[in-house]
Design a protein around this nucleic acid. Sequence first.
DNA 1: TTGACATCGTTGCAATAGCAACGATAATCC
DNA 2: GGATTATCGTTGCTATTGCAACGATGTCAA
Lengths: 141, 141
Amino acid sequence: MSFDLEGFLPYRLSVAATLVSRRFAALYGAEAGLTIPEWRVLAHLNRSGAVSVRDINVRVNLDKSIVSRAASRLEQAGLVRKAGHSGDRRLIALELTPKGQELMGRLGRIADAFQAELLAELGPDAAGLDRALDRLIARGV
Amino acid sequence: MSFDLEGFLPYRLSVAATLVSRRFAALYGAEAGLTIPEWRVLAHLNRSGAVSVRDINVRVNLDKSIVSRAASRLEQAGLVRKAGHSGDRRLIALELTPKGQELMGRLGRIADAFQAELLAELGPDAAGLDRALDRLIARGV
DNA sequence: TTGACATCGTTGCAATAGCAACGATAATCC
DNA sequence: GGATTATCGTTGCTATTGCAACGATGTCAA
């Protein structure tokens, strides 16, 4: 039997991820014209308070150049503030502005609603998907 | 409780897909320097015989410009042949050359082995993952 | 100290993706 | 039949990616 692309996990994962991302982008795109890196940076800052580019780069799986550029655009838009880290002058301290916090409040609710929608679609398979993703992500890092 | 990116399905899917793709690319990269679109086109042709750009574009989730350029590179490399479709002269008929078939034979075995490795890692959650991907992909198209 | 090496954030650059536009051919409608 | 509309594959164009290099700062050992 020759190889079947349609049943190949890396392919299926990639297609599913693209489709789901696109659905979500359509939701938050209406609220704020963010790119995916910008969204990830914002979402991470929403949780972790002041943090460096390197931190985000590691935790959120984005090249540091992408984080750097996303942060600049977000700063331009008044959503993020860059401050010098006290102590280590190589680091910068990124944090949300009040405007950024307010936006993330709205986006967080949209994201939570979308997550609930996905879980409902998946029904009983959601748990297996979650565990599988855990393993794949843990393995890959 | 504020929004948690680490638990957000679109994010987790995207990270997992990237990691798995990277692992696989490392495997076939050693065998042949193919890009992902090139690999997908090749894998699709391996199954479906002579087929048009449009066909691949639809089935394999790649923009037709990407398919077109991938096909040109593959033709350049002697892996694929472009023929005129009889009947409808807008279409072209892409098919593997013997060299392309031979390469796909090897890559297919590598891919099957990788798939087996993934399934082993996932253990009992593989089934749930598979059903979940089915749903997400079906829903998204 | 001071000199070698590591790490931070930014920037430059080549390759790619994704979209729109194009010429060529088909299909459809009057 | 002729005009309009749709579809095919290709190409141009712009934004984004991902990698490498850079200057600046820190660290560590002799």
